[in-house]
Write a protein that binds this DNA or RNA. Structure first.
Length: 469
DNA sequence: CCTGGAGTTGTCCTA
DNA sequence: TTAGGACAACTCCAG
């Protein structure tokens, strides 16, 4: 048997990696490759936080491969050219990869598949990163779903997702020249990633640890506690899923077999996996999800151009609203934000400040370690009301109400907004009120916008969209 | 083609 | 203090 090439992309793992599994099962030598492609058209450049993560994840994967007799081959360039080079350098006979779902990515993969097949190579792609292929889930009339609930019902009515494949225990490696990872300059200079390093362990080992911790908790209380940002109730698997360090099939079956897991908690957690599927299905059928309103009626929406100071206040967590600021600082420091707080800060930008959702989407793209091409734009559009199955326009989150409701003690606020550390659970949600604003939290800014009038302005703007003059 | 129930995550006002 | 209704209408989707 001749040499096989496994081209890894958003699937940086050994467990449940069908492409790798197929290559190893074929016999012969196997080369495992990652290509940094910044040249093919239509590929969105990685944000700063995901670059950092990618570097760490590739380093971790290389170590894992070395433990089983192989190594990770790193190449940079246009994927079409690089794959061609590798095929001739190593006299490759078969090429395997796991499918990706963005439109530019699919076009690239299709071209490469056609070219290699023409040369007489064996080429095979696999379902690895979504539980349900987007084109398989259709309504009774054959169209893609636009509403989550019937979509997920249709998914779960199908047969159970397959069980994960075991990791390969040995790879019969073939030598190939490789770039040195550091030459890709994925790590930030100057190094602002200390907070990320403290929080995360990129790579399959880190992903498996997060899953194990979540399973140890039994998912207990997830349905309720996942809404409390100060409680460690969510799985924190999102960045690992983003890079495919763990497969959704692995997660699906792992949580299914947790003893004592409450049915309601597991169902709610599975639903979150469902939203990920829904977002990718949306991107599959709407490739420009990050640029174009899903509901085109929103093309006429009159967004405000934020002043630089206003936008910076939001980005840097200086809006004067503790919950918004805590969230934005958590994002900046750790590369991640609690899900509920994402909704609050997004609602604040889009509705209270009337800033185009794309501005927020781009900031999240640059700063989130879990930013992916589907979930990030789909959820921003959901908040803005321009998306599929979106929030009704009159739903404007009140950051103070949300703060009282989901962080009643202010523990989350105190964790990320140091200026408020001295305030008690009563005063901390509205620091501009009360005597504290004169001394203890002197440095904490006053609100950049009033909630009630800005809410009214948003309702007017949305109403104008419904019923233009 | 028609029908009707349903639709992630909220807020505010009133009684 | 708390619970219920208004906030719009529209689109989706299964039967």
């Amino acid at each position: 048997m001749g040499t096989s090439l496994v081209w890894l992309r958003d699937d940086l793992r050994l467990v449940d990696n069908p492409a790798l599994h197929a290559a190893c099962g074929r016999g012969g030598k196997v080369a495992v490759v990652y290509i940094l492609d910044e040249q093919s058209t239509g590929i969105r450049p990685l944000g700063g936080a995901t670059k950092w993560w990618l570097h760490k994840s590739l380093a971790a994967l290389d170590l894992s491969l070395k433990a089983i007799g192989s190594t990770l081959v790193l190449r940079r360039g246009k994927a079409f050219d690089v794959v061609g080079d590798l095929v001739s350098e190593m006299k490759v006979e078969a090429v395997f990869w796991n499918r990706r779902y963005g439109s530019a990515e699919r076009a690239i993969d299709g071209q490469i598949k056609a070219a290699l097949t023409n040369q007489g190579l064996e080429v095979a792609s696999f379902q690895a990163n979504l539980l349900f292929e987007p084109w398989e889930i259709k309504t009774g009339s054959g169209t893609p779903y636009k509403v989550f609930t019937p979509f997920w019902r249709a998914c779960t009515d199908r047969s159970e997702p397959r069980h994960p494949l075991p990791a390969s225990s040995f790879i019969n490696a073939v030598h190939a020249d490789s770039d040195v990872l550091s030459s890709w300059s994925l790590l930030p200079k100057p190094d602002w990633a200390a907070g990320l390093s403290a929080e995360w362990a990129p790579g399959e080992g880190g992903a498996e640890r997060r899953l194990a911790e979540f399973c140890d908790r039994g998912g207990a209380g997830y349905a309720v506690d996942r809404d409390k940002p100060a409680v460690e109730a969510t799985s924190r698997l999102s960045p690992h899923l983003r890079f495919g360090e763990i497969s959704p099939f692995r997660i699906w079956h792992a949580i299914r077999s947790v003893p004592g897991g409450a049915a309601v908690d597991l169902a709610v957690f599975r639903t979150e996996l469902g939203w990920r599927e829904f977002c990718w299905q949306l991107l599959y059928f709407h490739p420009h999800l990050a640029a174009v309103n899903y509901r085109r009626k929103f093309d006429a929406f009159q967004w405000q151009t934020p002043s630089p100071g206003e936008l910076a206040a939001w980005q840097q967590g200086r809006t004067g609203y503790p919950l918004v600021d805590a969230g934005m600082r958590q994002l900046w420091q750790t590369g991640w934000m609690h899900n509920r707080i994402r909704m609050v800060v997004a609602s604040f930008l889009v509705k209270n400040l009337l800033v185009d959702w794309r501005v927020g989407e781009q900031w999240f793209w640059d700063t989130l370690v879990d930013a992916d091409a589907a979930n990030n734009p789909a959820n921003w559009q959901w908040v803005a009301g321009s998306g599929a199955d979106a929030a009704p326009y009159f739903r404007v989150f009140n950051p103070v109400t949300q703060s009282r409701k989901f962080d009643p003690d202010g523990a989350y606020l105190r964790q990320f907004v140091a200026e408020l550390a001295g305030l008690g659970p009563k005063a901390i949600h509205e620091p501009w009120k009360g005597p504290h604003s004169q001394d203890g939290n002197k440095k904490y800014p006053p609100p950049i916008v009033e909630l009630a009038p800005s809410r009214e302005r948003a309702l007017d703007a949305y109403a104008a969209l419904e019923d233009p003059l």
